[in-house]
Nucleic acid binder design. Structure first.
Lengths: 192, 192
DNA sequence: ACCTGAACACCGTTCAAGT
DNA sequence: ACCTGAACACCGTTCAAGT
């Protein structure tokens, strides 16, 4: 959004403001027509600036989500890798709960290289990978997990917490304890 | 569906068959108009038999979901409460993954007493409650959890597993280990 | 009683023009 | 260049009639 006509820039900003309000109120499934109308703009103008819903989410949340990577870099210097990972996971879950339904979009984007949110989600996943690896090297976290599963864990806790906010702390606690190398071995017995 | 006109009964069956196929293919968000059309029936006929989408899901899955309660009763006699709970949770997660998006409907129904799926979800939750209590009494599971959180845990694992089936076993393993009283019980007060 | 086709108010997306 | 109103094909839901 560097150059361009003055009204174009103004419309871009108006659309972001309206989208932020709509997503906050109705979740990420909010009507795009409503967003355009509330921005005082034709619906095609919205589509030109943001070809997909993910593009809108990326514009609104990309910077803040990529901030999780910076945060991970800081936490990598921590002397307690277990605690560093826990702290980071707590923040990641919080970010994934920014809007209702956001976590669905994030998970879908990670699978879809064509999504406008893909690179951002990948950055979050990579940030988690580093903290996970360090905690695993320190023997604080079970070794049979990779960053992909860690992303799923964040998403699952965020998804459930979004629906039942009162459960958030306990869901997180169960996940964190489950990540730690327990006294009981990792393998589970499935009915055969 | 005991009495009624012959064509009404036939339409009811046809709708269930079409709904099952549609949900299996497109998830629980499948078009109701499509279901009616594939059943060779007017759309209003669908609405009369099944006033809501949840009513359709209840008709398709109610019996099988309530089977989780019977299964829990059986498992209550097991001498290993920890294993009994794990086995039951594995099955509950499986049931919640029957259709794409089903877990969303289940969680919503539990919160909403007016939902046609509410009683069924409540039965599942109650079934889990018994196994959870027994495992907690045996000291095999952390005491700071109730059946409501357990339901959220099932739902969260089912939700993530549905999107990434390859993660299912590991997500379940992390949850099960997190449920167990770990060697690092930060949140658990010890009575010594 | 039980059914149906057609209408209604939405949705996302794309069109043909306007300045 | 950048914009807009109107159209298109959908959706769930409800209508006015039909047998």
């Amino acid at each position: 959004m560097a150059a361009g006509r003055k009204d174009a820039r103004r419309n871009y900003e108006r659309l972001l403001t309206a989208a932020q309000a709509a997503f906050a109120e109705h979740g990420v499934g909010a009507s795009l027509n409503d967003i355009a109308r509330n921005a005082g703009v034709g619906n095609v103008t919205l589509y030109r600036h943001f070809p997909t819903r993910q593009a809108l989410l990326e514009a609104l949340l990309g910077e803040s989500l990529r901030g999780l990577r910076t945060r991970a870099d800081e936490l990598l210097t921590s002397p307690a890798p277990d605690e560093a990972l826990s702290t980071w996971l707590d923040g990641a879950v919080e970010h994934a709960m920014t809007y209702r339904g956001l976590v669905d979009a994030l998970v879908d984007s990670l699978d879809d290289p064509a999504s406008d949110l893909h690179a951002t989600c990948q950055a979050v996943k990579d940030a988690g990978a580093q903290l996970l690896a360090k905690a695993q090297q320190a023997g604080a976290v079970r070794p049979d997990l990779d960053a992909s599963v860690l992303f799923s864990l964040i998403a699952s806790v965020a998804w459930a917490s979004e629906r039942t906010p009162a459960h958030r702390d306990q869901l997180l606690a169960v996940m964190l304890d489950g990540l730690r190398k327990g006294a009981s071995p990792a393998t589970i017995e499935r009915a055969s």
